[in-house]
Nucleic acid binder design. Structure first.
Lengths: 303, 303
DNA sequence: CTCACTATTGCTTTAAAAGCAATAGTGATT
DNA sequence: AATCACTATTGCTTTTAAAGCAATAGTGAG
């Protein structure tokens, strides 16, 4: 018996919920599916599917087996692809997931260049601040703010992700320059929001953490909109240096510096990481993209 | 093409290093192997094996593919077994690996009872202090001193693994009771050896670690032998409480207590863990053994 | 209670491995 | 350097297993 084929048939039946539909999807007669699945069940000595003419559903073991087998199928597919594409030119669909802000501001412009260099790679970009697992999901490369990845995943630090406070010159003129971190409590706050909530203004003075957040006038997970608000003098904003650098350079915003540095979390080593599955680095398209992104960002942003 | 069969053929060829030997092992003509492996290579578009009439060896991709595929085969075999044995009585070969000392002193007596309870389970016990990976190796259950397992492996704490210093009454009479930890430096030392070397006597005094090891008169990885030496008054021994408790109870050895506790590593939370692969808990024999061991040890040793 | 749809089964056809014998190539040995 | 022994491969036939088709039996909805 070709167990692999039987498993594929079985999976399709589970996914479509019907032998007939699965048969159409696979372009084989329903009788084949029926027979192969029956073979599989016989060889396992267990009933995987509870069938009636109207409805097909998984048994308890069937559910367990389906889950296991799904993982095995993807692993096998990946191994096959690794070998197939080994020492060939980079090509095919490359799926990249990135944090929204970083994606819009830095990654997408970079990938435009990348596409010119490797026209045979079809990019599939998802921007989201929710963290994807990078295991089950078919994401080749993920870019995330500093969190610890698991052992199968390799993480490369792309750049710092420290937050800095800024305000427009107009705002400072009107409201005065805060003389120290504590004074921020009296200022209008524009807050960046992560999936785990708005980021407070924190300050570490002599080993003690203080929350120096001022009254909020705007909260969003969209950095650009917040930066606009800051530019028009509505308040003080804390965001990442890379998100703000263009505004600072043009003079629209200016960095506020204090004796005691500000932060948005007590966890100090915040950074942007590029993540990929170690074994997938052998796939040319993945290797090409990882190398390209890491290299360009090293050159352009880590002055 | 039956890819699974092709992969099995391929693997056998790799393992035996020869098409002919593999063919004998599998009871099929060599031509079948040759053809199936060729099919596989064609479908992958890569050469997996470098053949000459005398020698067969893996190419670079072949090596990668072989490693990947090995894992997939074991996973599939395990999934199959899970289903096959689902809700049947515990039976079959159960492979357990344990630290030597713990195995001899605690586990094996326990497993004698287990065998009576589940006569259909054939036990396969390996005692070793080297740590096995529990992934590739076909070990169902492993018992190890506190180290962090990976995500797929579940760890259950069986008992503490703290080391205590002991000496025989005769030794104390002859050499005097050490008045504090520092005084140990003047005493004869009997040292337990782990794979990473002999275990020193360490003492944390006011946040500072001191090595208070005395001159060694015996070093071994065999706890029983060391305990005998300690009983005959040759020196002071540090070993685990569970290894020494019987001697202490009989009065052959007595525990030395100090103001500042002794240890053999700066890492404090030493413990004995039972490890198993999460998904394998569904296999009755594994579940039976895990439940049995954890339960018995909870009842008997965690007073 | 009937109808429509579905999974299954018996039978035939088709495809793909197994099996066997012969061939060609390679590395060690003399 | 030439032969020898052994091995992987290939051509061909046989065997096996899956595909394909048509007919059947069973079940849930209306």
């Amino acid at each position: 018996m070709d167990q692999l084929r039987a498993i594929r048939y079985f999976s399709k039946v589970v996914e479509t919920g019907s032998f007939t539909k699965a048969a159409n999807a696979l372009n084989v007669p329903p009788s084949s599916l029926s027979r192969r699945v029956a073979d599989l069940e016989k060889s396992l000595g267990a009933t995987l599917l509870k069938r009636s003419t109207r409805i097909v559903k998984l048994t308890e073991v069937g559910q367990i087996y389906y889950n296991d087998v799904q993982q095995i199928l993807t692993q096998l597919a990946q191994s096959n692809e690794t070998v197939r594409s080994y020492q060939t030119t980079p090509m095919g669909r490359l799926s990249i997931s990135s944090m929204v802000g970083f994606g819009e501001k830095i990654l997408l412009p970079l990938l435009d260049e990348f596409s010119e260099l490797y026209p045979e790679i079809i990019l599939d970009i998802s921007l989201s601040d929710e963290l994807s697992t990078l295991g089950r999901d078919d994401v080749d490369i993920a870019i995330r703010g500093g969190y610890a990845p698991n052992e199968r995943v390799l993480a490369i630090k792309l750049m710092d992700n420290g937050f800095i406070p800024v305000a427009s010159p107009e705002y400072i003129e009107t409201h005065g320059l805060p003389c120290n971190a504590m004074a921020l409590k009296e200022h209008n706050g524009i807050y960046f929001k992560t999936p785990s909530g708005p980021t407070p203004w924190l300050c570490n003075m002599n080993g003690q953490w203080h929350d120096v957040s001022g009254p909020a006038i705007a909260i969003s997970n969209n950095g650009t909109w917040l930066a606009k608000k800051a530019c028009s003098g509505e308040g003080i904003l804390m965001s990442t240096r890379w998100a703000l650098s263009s505004y600072i350079e043009s003079g629209q915003l200016q960095e506020l510096k204090f004796e005691h540095e500000l932060a948005i979390t007590q966890n100090s080593n915040m950074a942007v990481y590029l993540l990929y599955q170690k074994q997938r680095y052998l796939v040319p398209k993945v290797k090409a993209a990882v190398d390209f992104i890491v290299d360009k960002i090293k050159v352009r942003y880590n002055f």
